[in-house]
Design a protein around this nucleic acid. Structure first.
Lengths: 340, 340
DNA sequence: TCGATTGCTGAGATCGGTTGCAATAACACT
DNA sequence: AGTGTTATTGCAACCGATCTCAGCAATCGA
């Protein structure tokens, strides 16, 4: 019986069938694809044409096995549900396949054991390198335990300036921007709610807040320093219990800011009328929040691209860079002058 | 020089070195791992012990190449930045590795060409099956074009009840729940803002709204039927221009609801005081919105698990099921009685 | 006691490419 | 014409497993 499409069992298009069809040897076909300059252009074009006609593409599996290097690169994140990591994943996916890689997203749920698992798995897949966006301080030792320990880029700062390339944004600068913005609006008593703790980034932001506040003569007001997703909620509760609450709040990240505003809102406290709130991340989601969130924007897209560049750079000349990007202020509607 | 860790070039742990170390043949080692019952338990344990000692694990690449089937399964989504897909990805990641698969996230940005690309790529990787959460009506033809066209599960309804297994939630039921909730609160004039169009799901919700509204004697009020992310914003604008706006709004999905509320808020319209808004999805994020979003919850986690089950089921007995799940009402704070 | 099963292990081809080396062809130069 | 490159292509081993086929020993039934 004749179907229009030749399905069923087309004899498993391999390099050999192309070779036969083109009247050349296996190896020549291989070269035609992977090392074009090593084959006479006539031959190459002929082969490519034949292959095209057959609808042939090389098996990435077989290639990886033989070459001992593949094009799939793992991005290890603690929680894809967190919009920050989602945005990171998005831009990295793009950055990756602009360069011919396939991004493989690995979600650890904060479990370090899983991180380890992914590492070995990826090693077994001959991943040329990997990207880690951590939820906890990176265990450099763990990183090194893997053959490709030299080939990981971390999106966060790393303790002791190890041999691992990193990309971060300048936390201090970001907090400073927030503080300046708030000061400019007339606020003097500015609170802080900490975010997903454990990372150096989170700690840096906190430290920066503490330091810069003290430096400007005011006393820091830490509403919550918890590490979980409910920090925002607790921060708001704390706020509500205060006799003389701050007139503005800096949230360690946008998600926390959302939670703070939500919790505040359900108690009748309005933002920015009653209290200003500023986030840190610059999530697209912030623009659709109620009110649209004023925040410190991290150049997430850049981070993605740079992470991959760093990895590649390291792979060729072994260099290990530590890039720190500048954040910027994004004024929307959740901040205004203090109520008087 | 002696380092504590034996790095540099440990001679590439392969099945053969384990075999040698254990004093057996390659094939026996292979069996010890992949078909334990086929090898004498003594031998097996010995081999496993040796392997363990060497820190050996099998190469998934080599396995996939030979067996012509791997454990990596693609999840194709239009946009991971959309929390719905993020949550789906999260639960599916878990569901996948509970069953020994690795989820590979593929983001298409709505580009059908990319979907095709991923399909062929995954085919080349011998993925046993794939999951598609579409942004447009699924092109069944395109699906079939691929050898594993028979092995795709779609998270959405599919036209003409093709041979592709699907998982969806009952849109009509969901809209009914929303309508009932709103009616119960005393609302009679209920508007609708459409969401990411293109999918059958989106259309089903819209149709359900139209039909159920008419059926209850009221006239439908469609505030926006656009397909992009700004539907919410436009819907809100439209609302603001109306002489006699509805007292409640059903948003086709949570993201749209967020946008509606945000846009409304920036014009001074308060939710739920001035107008009630109910979403559709049940995103975790909704609990942290301001106000916390009342919504129709889809059992996302179930959808993930079921999708994988369907795929496996199809792989063994060739059965093609179409599962439709029941949504449920999740009352939070964005709905209340109409202002009078 | 002997042929027939059954259980376990080894040989070797194979999956789909890559790559060093050898062979041949083509071209340059004295 | 003779010889020394250089450009192309073929050969065959190899990457790290899987799997069919045999071989051999132990067990079983009569």
């Amino acid at each position: 019986m004749t179907t229009s499409t030749e399905e069923e069992n087309m004899p498993d298009l391999s390099i050999d069938v192309v070779a036969k069809a083109a009247g050349v040897h296996r190896s020549t076909v291989s070269r035609a694809f992977s090392r074009p300059e090593a084959v006479k252009s006539e031959t190459r074009e002929h082969i490519l044409r034949v292959a095209e006609g057959l609808g042939y593409t090389m098996s990435p599996l077989a290639q990886a096995l033989r070459r001992k290097t593949s094009t799939i690169i793992p991005l290890i994140v603690p929680d894809i549900t967190n919009p920050f990591f989602a945005e990171l994943a998005k831009t990295m996916t793009q950055a990756a396949d602009e360069r011919g890689y396939q991004l493989m997203l690995c979600v650890t749920n904060g479990d370090p054991a899983k991180t380890d698992g992914y590492f070995t798995a990826m090693q077994a897949m001959y991943a040329p390198f990997g990207i880690v966006a951590p939820s906890t301080k990176v265990d450099t030792e763990a990183l090194k335990r893997f053959a490709f320990g030299h080939k990981v880029v971390v999106i966060d700062r790393v303790e002791g300036d190890s041999s691992v390339p990193t990309v971060t944004v300048d936390s201090r600068q970001g907090i400073m921007l927030a503080l300046d913005h708030l000061h400019g609006l007339g606020h003097t008593r500015i609170g802080y709610v900490s975010g997903i703790a454990g990372t150096h980034t989170a700690q840096d932001r906190m430290d920066a807040y503490l330091e810069l506040t003290a430096q400007s003569g005011s006393t820091p007001i830490v509403l919550d320093s918890g590490s979980d997703l409910d920090a925002g909620t607790r921060g708001a509760e704390h706020f509500l219990e205060m006799d003389n609450p701050p007139t503005a709040i800096i949230a360690a990240n946008d998600m926390v800011a959302f939670a703070v505003i939500s919790a505040l809102g359900s108690s009748g406290v309005r933002v920015p009328e009653d209290v200003s709130v500023i986030g840190f991340d610059g999530l697209a989601l912030g623009a659709r929040f109620n009110p649209a969130l004023t925040t410190i924007r991290q150049p997430i897209a850049d981070m993605g691209h740079i992470a991959i560049e760093l990895a590649e750079k390291q792979n060729v000349d072994g260099s290990v860079d530590h890039i720190v990007l500048e954040p910027e202020l994004l004024v929307r509607r959740s901040t205004s002058g203090p109520r008087r």
